[in-house]
Amino acid sequence: MMEFGRLPNPRAAQALVDYLKSQGIECHQTFLDDVVVLSVVSASDLSAAQAEFARFRQNPLDEKYLAASWESGTTSSHLDYGAPGLSLLSRFITGAGPLTLVIFALCVLVYAALNLGFGDQTFALLSFFGATGTFQASELWRVFTPTLLHFSLMHISFNLLWWWFLGGRIETRIGTKPLLILLLVAGTVPNIAQYFLTGPNFGGLSGVVYAVAGYSWLMGVRKPSAGISLPASYMGFMVLWMVLGFFDVLGLSMANAAHLGGLMVGLLQALWDSRKTR
Protein backbone atom coordinates (compact mmCIF):
# COMPACT_ATOMS: atom_id res chain seq x y z
CA MET A 1 0.00 0.00 0.00
CA MET A 2 1.10 3.57 -0.71
CA GLU A 3 0.42 6.49 1.62
CA PHE A 4 -1.25 9.55 0.08
CA GLY A 5 -2.05 11.65 3.13
CA ARG A 6 -2.68 12.01 6.85
CA LEU A 7 -5.61 13.48 8.76
CA PRO A 8 -5.96 14.31 12.46
CA ASN A 9 -9.54 13.08 12.88
CA PRO A 10 -10.84 9.53 12.23
CA ARG A 11 -14.34 10.74 11.29
CA ALA A 12 -12.95 13.10 8.66
CA ALA A 13 -10.69 10.35 7.34
CA GLN A 14 -13.67 7.98 7.06
CA ALA A 15 -15.58 10.54 5.00
CA LEU A 16 -12.73 10.80 2.51
CA VAL A 17 -12.27 7.01 2.38
CA ASP A 18 -15.97 6.55 1.70
CA TYR A 19 -15.86 9.06 -1.13
CA LEU A 20 -12.78 7.50 -2.72
CA LYS A 21 -14.41 4.07 -2.57
CA SER A 22 -17.44 5.53 -4.35
CA GLN A 23 -15.03 6.58 -7.10
CA GLY A 24 -13.61 3.07 -7.40
CA ILE A 25 -10.42 3.79 -5.42
CA GLU A 26 -9.70 1.19 -2.74
CA CYS A 27 -7.91 2.67 0.27
CA HIS A 28 -7.21 1.87 3.89
CA GLN A 29 -6.79 3.72 7.17
CA THR A 30 -4.00 3.12 9.68
CA PHE A 31 -4.14 4.76 13.09
CA LEU A 32 -0.74 6.15 14.09
CA ASP A 33 -0.48 8.13 17.33
CA ASP A 34 -2.83 11.11 16.84
CA VAL A 35 -3.25 10.88 13.07
CA VAL A 36 -4.89 8.61 10.53
CA VAL A 37 -2.60 7.48 7.71
CA LEU A 38 -4.42 7.01 4.40
CA SER A 39 -3.09 4.58 1.80
CA VAL A 40 -4.19 3.21 -1.56
CA VAL A 41 -3.87 -0.41 -2.58
CA SER A 42 -3.04 0.16 -6.24
CA ALA A 43 -0.23 2.39 -7.51
CA SER A 44 -2.43 3.42 -10.43
CA ASP A 45 -4.80 5.12 -7.96
CA LEU A 46 -2.11 7.10 -6.12
CA SER A 47 -2.22 10.29 -8.21
CA ALA A 48 -6.02 10.47 -8.14
CA ALA A 49 -6.07 9.90 -4.37
CA GLN A 50 -3.46 12.61 -3.79
CA ALA A 51 -5.41 15.08 -5.89
CA GLU A 52 -8.66 14.32 -4.03
CA PHE A 53 -6.84 14.56 -0.69
CA ALA A 54 -5.72 18.07 -1.63
CA ARG A 55 -9.31 19.05 -2.48
CA PHE A 56 -10.56 17.52 0.77
CA ARG A 57 -8.04 19.52 2.83
CA GLN A 58 -9.31 22.72 1.21
CA ASN A 59 -13.01 21.93 1.73
CA PRO A 60 -13.63 18.97 4.09
CA LEU A 61 -17.30 19.89 4.52
CA ASP A 62 -18.12 19.51 0.83
CA GLU A 63 -21.48 17.79 0.51
CA LYS A 64 -20.07 15.06 -1.73
CA TYR A 65 -18.06 13.59 1.17
CA LEU A 66 -21.05 13.52 3.48
CA ALA A 67 -23.19 11.99 0.73
CA ALA A 68 -20.67 9.23 0.14
CA SER A 69 -20.66 8.36 3.84
CA TRP A 70 -24.44 8.26 3.91
CA GLU A 71 -24.48 5.88 0.97
CA SER A 72 -22.02 3.59 2.73
CA GLY A 73 -24.01 3.69 5.94
CA THR A 74 -21.10 4.77 8.12
CA THR A 75 -21.96 8.36 9.10
CA SER A 76 -24.04 10.45 11.44
CA SER A 77 -25.81 13.56 10.19
CA HIS A 78 -22.65 15.65 10.13
CA LEU A 79 -18.88 15.39 10.11
CA ASP A 80 -17.62 15.59 13.69
CA TYR A 81 -14.14 17.09 13.89
CA GLY A 82 -13.97 17.00 17.68
CA ALA A 83 -13.69 19.82 20.20
CA PRO A 84 -12.98 23.13 18.38
CA GLY A 85 -9.91 24.05 20.44
CA LEU A 86 -8.30 20.62 20.22
CA SER A 87 -9.22 20.35 16.55
CA LEU A 88 -7.57 23.69 15.74
CA LEU A 89 -4.37 22.72 17.54
CA SER A 90 -4.38 19.29 15.93
CA ARG A 91 -4.82 20.78 12.47
CA PHE A 92 -2.04 23.27 13.13
CA ILE A 93 0.38 20.50 14.09
CA THR A 94 -0.62 17.91 11.49
CA GLY A 95 -0.88 20.52 8.74
CA ALA A 96 2.88 21.02 8.82
CA GLY A 97 6.05 19.01 9.26
CA PRO A 98 8.77 19.38 11.90
CA LEU A 99 10.88 21.84 9.91
CA THR A 100 7.89 24.11 9.30
CA LEU A 101 6.98 24.08 12.98
CA VAL A 102 10.56 24.62 14.21
CA ILE A 103 11.06 27.72 12.04
CA PHE A 104 7.61 28.97 13.05
CA ALA A 105 8.56 28.61 16.73
CA LEU A 106 11.98 30.21 16.25
CA CYS A 107 10.48 33.28 14.58
CA VAL A 108 7.96 33.65 17.42
CA LEU A 109 10.68 33.32 20.06
CA VAL A 110 12.93 35.84 18.32
CA TYR A 111 10.02 38.29 17.94
CA ALA A 112 9.22 37.89 21.63
CA ALA A 113 12.85 38.54 22.57
CA LEU A 114 12.90 41.69 20.41
CA ASN A 115 9.87 43.05 22.22
CA LEU A 116 10.39 41.88 25.80
CA GLY A 117 13.51 43.74 26.83
CA PHE A 118 16.13 41.87 24.82
CA GLY A 119 15.82 43.78 21.55
CA ASP A 120 19.34 45.19 21.33
CA GLN A 121 21.03 41.93 22.26
CA THR A 122 18.86 39.86 19.91
CA PHE A 123 19.38 42.18 16.96
CA ALA A 124 23.13 42.34 17.61
CA LEU A 125 23.31 38.55 17.64
CA LEU A 126 21.15 37.77 14.59
CA SER A 127 21.45 40.77 12.24
CA PHE A 128 23.40 40.77 8.99
CA PHE A 129 27.12 41.57 8.88
CA GLY A 130 27.73 45.20 9.78
CA ALA A 131 24.25 46.07 11.05
CA THR A 132 25.59 46.85 14.53
CA GLY A 133 28.83 48.49 13.42
CA THR A 134 31.32 45.70 13.96
CA PHE A 135 31.40 42.06 12.92
CA GLN A 136 33.73 39.13 12.43
CA ALA A 137 33.96 37.13 9.22
CA SER A 138 33.68 33.91 11.23
CA GLU A 139 30.06 34.74 12.21
CA LEU A 140 28.68 32.88 9.22
CA TRP A 141 25.23 32.46 10.76
CA ARG A 142 24.57 36.13 9.96
CA VAL A 143 23.99 35.27 6.33
CA PHE A 144 20.82 33.38 7.36
CA THR A 145 19.63 34.62 10.76
CA PRO A 146 18.14 37.96 9.57
CA THR A 147 15.44 35.70 8.12
CA LEU A 148 14.25 35.07 11.70
CA LEU A 149 13.95 38.79 12.57
CA HIS A 150 10.55 40.52 12.36
CA PHE A 151 9.89 44.08 13.46
CA SER A 152 6.10 44.33 13.64
CA LEU A 153 3.12 42.13 14.46
CA MET A 154 1.72 42.51 10.93
CA HIS A 155 5.10 41.55 9.46
CA ILE A 156 5.47 38.32 11.42
CA SER A 157 1.78 37.39 11.14
CA PHE A 158 1.77 37.70 7.35
CA ASN A 159 5.00 35.76 6.94
CA LEU A 160 4.21 32.95 9.37
CA LEU A 161 0.73 32.42 7.98
CA TRP A 162 2.13 31.83 4.50
CA TRP A 163 5.10 29.84 5.81
CA TRP A 164 2.87 27.46 7.77
CA PHE A 165 0.31 27.09 4.98
CA LEU A 166 2.64 26.71 1.99
CA GLY A 167 5.75 25.38 3.71
CA GLY A 168 3.62 22.90 5.62
CA ARG A 169 2.06 21.59 2.44
CA ILE A 170 5.42 21.21 0.75
CA GLU A 171 6.85 19.31 3.71
CA THR A 172 3.89 17.00 4.33
CA ARG A 173 3.18 16.20 0.68
CA ILE A 174 6.61 16.23 -0.96
CA GLY A 175 9.07 15.99 1.92
CA THR A 176 11.32 17.86 4.31
CA LYS A 177 14.30 17.90 1.95
CA PRO A 178 12.85 20.23 -0.74
CA LEU A 179 11.56 22.59 1.95
CA LEU A 180 14.95 22.61 3.68
CA ILE A 181 16.66 23.49 0.39
CA LEU A 182 14.18 26.32 -0.20
CA LEU A 183 14.71 27.60 3.35
CA LEU A 184 18.50 27.56 3.22
CA VAL A 185 18.91 28.96 -0.29
CA ALA A 186 16.09 31.52 -0.15
CA GLY A 187 17.09 32.41 3.41
CA THR A 188 20.69 33.27 2.46
CA VAL A 189 21.24 34.24 -1.20
CA PRO A 190 18.47 36.91 -1.26
CA ASN A 191 19.85 38.33 2.01
CA ILE A 192 23.18 38.91 0.32
CA ALA A 193 21.42 40.62 -2.59
CA GLN A 194 19.43 42.80 -0.18
CA TYR A 195 22.63 43.81 1.61
CA PHE A 196 24.22 45.09 -1.58
CA LEU A 197 21.03 46.94 -2.51
CA THR A 198 20.15 48.67 0.78
CA GLY A 199 22.73 47.76 3.41
CA PRO A 200 22.57 45.43 6.43
CA ASN A 201 19.47 46.70 8.24
CA PHE A 202 16.76 44.27 7.15
CA GLY A 203 15.06 41.14 8.35
CA GLY A 204 12.13 38.79 7.88
CA LEU A 205 11.02 35.50 6.37
CA SER A 206 9.55 37.24 3.32
CA GLY A 207 12.21 36.00 0.89
CA VAL A 208 11.51 32.42 1.93
CA VAL A 209 7.75 33.04 1.73
CA TYR A 210 8.16 34.19 -1.87
CA ALA A 211 10.24 31.07 -2.52
CA VAL A 212 7.57 28.66 -1.21
CA ALA A 213 4.87 30.63 -3.03
CA GLY A 214 6.69 30.47 -6.36
CA TYR A 215 7.51 26.82 -5.79
CA SER A 216 3.90 25.89 -4.92
CA TRP A 217 2.47 27.75 -7.90
CA LEU A 218 4.83 26.30 -10.49
CA MET A 219 4.66 22.77 -9.07
CA GLY A 220 0.88 23.00 -9.28
CA VAL A 221 1.18 23.94 -12.96
CA ARG A 222 3.87 21.43 -13.93
CA LYS A 223 3.21 18.55 -11.54
CA PRO A 224 -0.36 18.62 -10.11
CA SER A 225 -0.02 15.07 -8.81
CA ALA A 226 2.50 16.34 -6.24
CA GLY A 227 -0.51 17.63 -4.30
CA ILE A 228 0.54 21.27 -3.87
CA SER A 229 -0.54 24.37 -5.74
CA LEU A 230 -1.23 28.07 -5.39
CA PRO A 231 -4.03 29.76 -7.35
CA ALA A 232 -2.76 32.09 -10.07
CA SER A 233 -4.73 34.97 -8.50
CA TYR A 234 -2.79 34.59 -5.23
CA MET A 235 0.50 34.41 -7.07
CA GLY A 236 -0.49 37.47 -9.06
CA PHE A 237 -1.25 39.39 -5.88
CA MET A 238 2.15 38.56 -4.40
CA VAL A 239 3.95 39.60 -7.58
CA LEU A 240 1.97 42.86 -7.68
CA TRP A 241 2.85 43.51 -4.02
CA MET A 242 6.52 42.97 -4.84
CA VAL A 243 6.42 45.28 -7.86
CA LEU A 244 4.71 48.04 -5.84
CA GLY A 245 7.47 47.67 -3.26
CA PHE A 246 10.15 48.33 -5.87
CA PHE A 247 8.41 51.56 -6.88
CA ASP A 248 7.86 52.59 -3.23
CA VAL A 249 4.17 53.17 -3.88
CA LEU A 250 3.10 51.72 -0.52
CA GLY A 251 5.34 53.84 1.67
CA LEU A 252 6.59 50.73 3.49
CA SER A 253 10.12 49.55 4.13
CA MET A 254 10.27 46.34 2.10
CA ALA A 255 13.16 43.98 1.36
CA ASN A 256 12.47 44.04 -2.36
CA ALA A 257 15.67 42.30 -3.46
CA ALA A 258 15.02 39.50 -0.96
CA HIS A 259 11.47 39.09 -2.29
CA LEU A 260 12.62 38.89 -5.90
CA GLY A 261 15.54 36.63 -5.03
CA GLY A 262 13.30 34.29 -3.03
CA LEU A 263 10.78 34.08 -5.86
CA MET A 264 13.53 33.18 -8.34
CA VAL A 265 14.83 30.48 -5.98
CA GLY A 266 11.36 28.94 -5.64
CA LEU A 267 10.67 28.96 -9.38
CA LEU A 268 14.05 27.45 -10.24
CA GLN A 269 13.70 24.68 -7.68
CA ALA A 270 10.17 23.92 -8.89
CA LEU A 271 11.47 23.62 -12.45
CA TRP A 272 14.09 21.15 -11.24
CA ASP A 273 11.85 19.13 -8.91
CA SER A 274 8.98 18.86 -11.39
CA ARG A 275 11.42 17.66 -14.05
CA LYS A 276 12.86 15.00 -11.73
CA THR A 277 9.48 13.66 -10.61
CA ARG A 278 7.83 13.40 -13.99
Rank of each mutant, 00 (worst) to 15 (best):
H150R: 01
T198H: 12
G199W: 06
S233H: 11
V36N: 03
T198A: 12
F104N: 02
F237C: 13
V35E: 00
D18Q: 15
S225F: 07
T134L: 14
F151Y: 08
L271V: 06
H259V: 05
R91N: 13
A48S: 13
F4C: 01
G24V: 14
H155P: 01
I103W: 05
G133W: 06
L166M: 13
A68D: 07
L218G: 04
D62P: 12
A112P: 05
G251S: 00
H28A: 02
Y111C: 00
L148F: 06
S47P: 08
R142D: 04
W162I: 07
G175L: 07
G95W: 03
V239M: 09
L180R: 02
F56T: 07
A257T: 10
A12L: 11
G133V: 09
G236N: 04
I103A: 01
F56K: 05
Q269T: 00
T30M: 01
A67Q: 12
P8G: 11
G251P: 00
A15M: 09
T145Y: 03
D33E: 12
S216A: 14
V221E: 10
D18E: 13
L79M: 12
A105C: 07
L89D: 10
A49T: 03
L116D: 08
Q136H: 13
D120C: 05
A255N: 05
G220H: 05
V110A: 02
D62H: 13
T147L: 04
L182P: 00
I192S: 09
Q58H: 12
L267W: 05
V189H: 11
F56Q: 09
D273E: 09
E63F: 15
A68V: 11
R11D: 15
T145N: 04
F128I: 02
Q269C: 06
Y65Q: 09
Q194S: 09
L271H: 05
P10N: 08
L218W: 02
T94M: 06
I170R: 00
L88S: 13
L46E: 01
L32G: 05
N9S: 10
F158Y: 12
R222M: 07
N159S: 11
L140K: 12
A112S: 15
G261S: 10
G262H: 01
Q23N: 14
T132K: 08
A105H: 05
G175W: 05
R275H: 05
T147K: 02
W163V: 00
S206R: 00
L126Y: 01
G82S: 10
L101Q: 07
G82V: 08
E26F: 13
F53T: 04
N191I: 03
V102A: 12
E63M: 15
F246D: 06
F144L: 07
R91G: 15
A105L: 11
S22P: 15
Y81K: 11
S77N: 15
L184I: 10
L106T: 02
L267T: 09
N159T: 08
F151R: 06
W162Y: 09
R278P: 08
L38Q: 01
I156H: 00
F4W: 03
L20Q: 08
L260D: 06
F237Y: 11
S72C: 14
T176C: 08
T75M: 13
T30D: 06
L20N: 02
W70C: 13
L153T: 15
P8C: 10
V108E: 02
